[in-house]
Design a protein around this nucleic acid. Structure first.
Lengths: 227, 227
DNA sequence: TTTAGAAAAGTTGTAATATAGGTTTTGTTT
DNA sequence: AAACAAAACCTATATTACAACTTTTCTAAA
């Protein structure tokens, strides 16, 4: 069951994601939001408080609440819905290259048989999936399972965050760069991990990400916001 | 000027950092906290709301608020004050190896003369500093300036987050692993960047982090909490 | 004594109202 | 058109109240 304050949170987040309120712009006042969503000001404040904690918005006493710019050092917003431009996507992929490489490296060295089985099953599932959303979830699961096998909590946290960003920007870009054509690539990565071949695994995952970048470059994503 | 709700936030965070309230344990009730800090329940709730947004605590309606375990997938807590054990430190350094390598690589390729000057000045300042806290700040600035030069916002966000974690665990571990003996290492990294030598720069930063790990291993940190 | 269930106490979620202390907008005067 | 004052607006905090849920305590039955 969803809190009312969570409803407020989601509502405002959606306003920002959809571009109805852009960085630098002011939110409706707490009173107004309460009226719109038919909740009390206390509840509105609770939702806004959270959004401010993760750095999406800033509050100015007496002056209102404003959507933050993504380039400010409000670093908690890493995962906030501000990744809507081409540049962001490349930035993210650079980071993925570094962290996914680390992930497969550690994973290959220490993955258990049990985790390996689970990884295999994920790849198997991908073969029979045509639905884009489902494929996305399997894709995320595959990569996060690799990271999970490293037993590095921080790494898993950061990677989860990154996939959260990918998900939030998904409707704009994801289906253009990730689909069934990626199946073989996943299979190769899995084989290398199974063979405990660190060098090969690293090579395959780098190639995997490079191909995503290639696809992306051939089919550039407009930076127009979704409606 | 600090908000009252921020006072609540800091107070509770400190309770967790110092280990007075451990993961899984319950916080004092909102009413109790308000009484202790002499603020209203509204204010207490505002502070707690934020802590819940970043994943440090969970709230149960009717049941109280609890400190989260760090291994739950509440990934926003990446930067929360839960990094207090030896294992965490190694995990973090693995990540730093991947991301700092990426940072110097991108930085070396595209740093401006102006940013380079600023980097030099930071290293220069380090020579004349004996105070641990000041050295920490310069150390952070050096590494974050390198990342800043990459123009990759996400990378900067993540790195800032990581240094935030380091800072919060600093009183336990930092002064044991980072001090003047690291000066030469920074100088070498800077020289390689100045020479636009990517390979050398990557080698030096990896060596830098490996030496930190070495120091740490020779002087293991107790996992006892500070008081 | 143990146990099951009911009652009580405790706790968070939300609401309505009020005030203080800021900021932004509006209006008026020069 | 500019400067200043006033009004309107907005967030921060406090108080009080009640709903809804959880935990603890008490009581009665086995």
């Amino acid at each position: 069951m969803k809190n009312k304050s969570q409803v407020v949170y989601d509502y405002i987040e959606e306003l920002v994601i959809s571009g109805q309120i852009k960085p630098g712009e002011r939110l409706p006042s707490e009173a107004k939001l309460g009226e719109t969503l038919e909740v009390s000001r206390v509840t509105v404040r609770a939702g806004i408080e959270k959004l401010s904690a993760i750095g999406l918005i800033s509050k100015k006493k007496g002056g209102g609440s404003y959507v933050n710019f993504p380039n400010d050092l409000n670093y908690l917003q890493v995962f906030t819905p501000t990744i809507l431009h081409n540049t962001d996507f490349y930035e993210l992929l650079d980071i993925r290259k570094a962290l996914d490489t680390l992930s497969v490296e550690l994973c290959t060295q220490m993955i258990s048989e049990r985790d390996l089985k689970s990884l295999e099953s994920t790849v198997k599932k991908m073969e029979h999936v045509s639905d884009g959303q489902t494929f996305f979830e399997l894709d995320r699961q595959f990569h996060l399972d690799i990271t999970k096998a490293t037993k590095n909590r921080f790494l898993l946290n950061i990677q989860s965050m990154i996939w959260d960003v990918i998900e939030k920007s998904q409707r704009i870009s994801y289906d253009k760069v990730a689909n069934q054509s990626r199946l073989v690539e996943h299979q190769l990565i899995l084989d290398a991990i199974t063979a405990r071949d660190v060098v090969q695994a690293k090579a395959y995952i780098l190639s995997h990400l490079d191909k995503i970048i290639d696809t992306y470059q051939n089919e550039p994503i407009t930076s127009s916001k979704v409606q």
